[in-house]
Design a protein around this nucleic acid. Structure first.
Lengths: 486, 486
DNA sequence: AAATTTGTCTATTTACATTTC
DNA sequence: GGAAATGTAAATAGACAAATT
């Protein structure tokens, strides 16, 4: 049996003793000296072997027996060790790959994901001690007087009550006009026909993913990206593939490689104020992505979530490759988080699929909120709120720059969050935990990691999330002292 | 080879000639006389065979070459005909099963689904001629003065603007109290801890499905059910299994069988005013479902979408099996469709999973709409609207009963829709088409069918959807005349 | 640059379970 | 009630392709 294996697979181990030891039936020989990084002990319990193996793998990862970054034994070695076929191992690994626990590359092996231990969802934790929130990107407390004002005006009109009927599924003409206007400020060209409204940015992402992709499809992303995309993709069985960066941007070579080898069907990007790195994508990179997308006919999901932090509109990939790009323009972050509204700009060929997905998810959106948003935009109040948001960010950033002057904190002064690079010796996750215990919530790089890219040690600071500038200052000082001490 | 096949499988065809003809290599012999119901012509085009086969099957169904109800040849016969292994056929069939195109039963064979040709989504069609809407269950045009009134009151308060901030993710205490009160009127026991708000009933369904089930899981349903469930399940790769009825209700035997053989993880039911049959579930059946659910530990998704059409609350499965049941209480149909709000009552053990799923889908819901809904409920205005809705239904039903007196039209007089049973000789889908051409939109039974249950010929009439009683009358007369004529 | 390592995919073998007759 | 018909699932065999050495 061993001989057969060697002959058939042209194996050339030079240690025959080891080879002999691999045969399970020779149970007297101990396996202890074998160099396998993982030696699962499978008790099938009448379960199919591949399922039992997958469960054991998951357990061992969750228990910390297998740490992120661990390279698992080659499937063939495991197969031999466990006396089953390679395909059986492969099948078990595939289950865990779909769960985002591991990630395999031909030639290099299978690695335990770096985010396998972080909780995917970023639901703000309930604590029984006061917490300075710099984790979730919840905009500051605000009274939103402009919105109140607009609602008051709306109430004067006789048709007001009708806004609680079903409304037109796809928005009225004038509402779409308002959307087009809004999108112009984000640098995204659009027409009334290309716009579909969704219940917020996350809802838009889920709709695009579920409408244009199917379970098993792959989407390229930055090596660190928005966790909401990760959870949505995970929910739909869509796999994310990190595209290697050069100078903080996707490298053309890596992108093309992902198209050819991984067969990705789309990419997700946040060109302005990338989450979490705060990076602003260069003109050149936008054009490169547009070109590659056109050449390979892949779908670009361009998330303009922070685009209005730019005072004047910058270019978009949607501009350069309108037939490839689904652009998401959310109002939540910029105008008001309670508005739960986002516009999707889609090429005509994808419109039906996206509209259908939205119908499956929500049936329809609130006509009241849609009308409210449209009026906020038409009246210019939406942009005014964006302006205020920028001003607040500036103020917060002054504080950040002062307190964290000794550190490498990436991000423009107009950014509502910053990216604090830690010395390589410091484990970001450890700092997140320590900070939490000191009453400051921040999120470490692991939470944003895609696949098996080992994230640099860094922390995202949502600087406009805390309830006051005083709190921000307090939180930053706690963080600074923690870093100096550690 | 043939001999081997016969020996191995103990086949006992008594016509050797036929058997000989099955061998592909004997290409001179024609296959024309073979009794296969489907003879695919597979051109692989470098695609894997199983994928090519699945695509061909889908094409042939969509093209009408394979009609709903057609029994496909046994997998073994097809395998023989195409000279491949049974498993290859099986794999191809599985792809189409997941798409809802076919449905296989061990022992009985594989059948083309009856809803394989109907468009899953019920997005109201755009027409350039006036259409009397009796298809989509869109509530009538209404001015919703009560809502306007409540918003006016809300505006007077100083904190109003804060309702456009992020709000508390899971609703405030008093909002939950309002929800509990609302749920009491629906007969569903709840506590503040067991309630999670979603953006409307459909959103709630998607959240429960994606939070508690995974791709490949099976859920039992009525043989005819709400199409929104079908599309949501389809989107998530969840398979629906029809549970056979006896006297218009799920039969205990069939339910237990589905648990044991199909391994269903849950069931979806609409006990009050079942969509589309209008059936009110008996006390006995509710108790039976609760008992079986407890015994087998399956999840009951109880959709109370029409429960408030009952003047006084009836019992719920949630009452009898609170640890098994996720109850959905939507405000859209009863209070106002523009409100986009539903409450999910969940057993504690499922709460986290559902909350997480909702976070993945929407991040959060509009605090403004949540507050508005809570006040509508607390002030008793919500129930008043439900009352109005019942009254309107009564008025509409009088008209229905008068005009369609010659027909078998199921449903209480308080129902907002009715179920028109057609003579077996009439094809419901044909009537739907004809009616549409005459300017009346109705939905035929095929749209509600799950799997391969051949639906009875029937049509759902959404009687409160048309814009006026006159229109309803006009539409019904057109329909009556059409039926008399055909 | 060639050989080796390594993950992945398709198709097959085999066993199994349920329904029908 | 037992045999046949029928779909399904697990594990295997073998080929393939990318990455590493």
């Amino acid at each position: 049996m061993i001989i057969r294996y060697i002959l058939k697979n042209n194996l050339s181990y030079n240690c025959t003793i080891t080879l002999f030891a691999r045969k399970k039936s020779m149970s007297l020989i101990s396996f202890d000296h074998l160099p396998l990084t993982w030696k699962p002990n499978i008790i099938t319990n009448h379960k199919p072997f591949y399922i039992a193996l997958a469960e054991q793998l998951e357990l061992d990862i969750k228990n910390g027996r297998l740490l992120p970054g661990t390279i698992l034994p080659p499937q063939r070695e495991l197969a031999y060790f466990l006396d089953v076929n390679v395909s059986t191992i492969s099948r078990a690994f595939k289950i865990c790959t779909k769960k985002g626990l591991i990630c395999g590359t031909i030639g290099s092996g299978t690695v335990v994901s770096y985010d396998s231990l972080t909780n995917l969802s970023l639901i703000p934790k309930q604590t029984n001690f006061p917490l300075i929130e710099m984790g979730s990107m919840i905009p500051e407390e605000n009274t939103y007087d402009e919105i109140t004002q607009v609602i008051k005006e709306m109430l004067k009109e006789t048709d007001f009550g009708k806004l609680f009927g079903y409304g037109t599924f796809m928005a009225t003409h004038w509402q779409k006009e308002a959307a087009v206007k809004f999108l112009t400020h984000m640098g995204c060209p659009s027409t009334k026909d290309s716009i579909v409204p969704a219940q917020g940015g996350q809802n838009a992402i889920v709709a695009i993913l579920s409408g244009l992709f199917k379970s098993g499809d792959k989407i390229g992303t930055d090596p660190l990206t928005y966790p909401g995309l990760k959870s949505a993709a995970h929910m739909l069985g869509i796999q994310l593939v990190p595209i290697r960066h050069i100078d903080n941007e996707m490298s053309e070579e890596a992108l093309i490689q992902a198209c050819e080898n991984e067969n990705i069907k789309g990419i997700y990007i946040i060109p302005e104020y990338q989450n979490p790195t705060t990076h602003l994508m260069s003109e050149q990179c936008k054009k490169m992505i547009a070109r590659v997308a056109k050449e390979r006919d892949i779908i670009v999901i361009e998330d303009g979530i922070h685009s209005l932090l730019n005072e004047t509109p910058r270019s978009t990939v949607a501009m350069y490759a309108p037939e490839q790009t689904c652009y998401i323009a959310s109002l939540s972050k910029i105008v008001s988080p309670g508005l739960r509204l986002a516009y999707i700009v889609t090429p005509l060929r994808y419109k039906n699929a996206i509209a259908n997905a939205l119908y499956n998810l929500n049936i329809t959106i609130s006509p009241f909120l849609l009308e409210l948003a449209s009026r906020m935009i038409a009246s210019g109040k939406a942009l005014k709120l964006a302006q205020e948001r920028r001003h607040l960010a500036m103020k917060c950033n002054e504080i950040v720059n002062t307190i964290l002057v000794d550190f490498d904190v990436r991000g423009e002064n107009s950014s509502t969050f910053r990216w604090l690079i830690l010395p390589e010796t410091l484990d970001a996750k450890y700092i997140e935990e320590k900070a939490f215990n000191l009453g400051v919530q921040v999120y470490s790089s692991e939470r944003f990691t895609v696949g098996t890219t080992k994230p640099i040690s860094a922390i995202r600071l949502a600087i406009t999330a805390s309830s006051s500038l005083e709190n921000l200052e307090k939180g930053l000082i706690i963080l600074r002292d923690l870093l100096h001490k550690t």
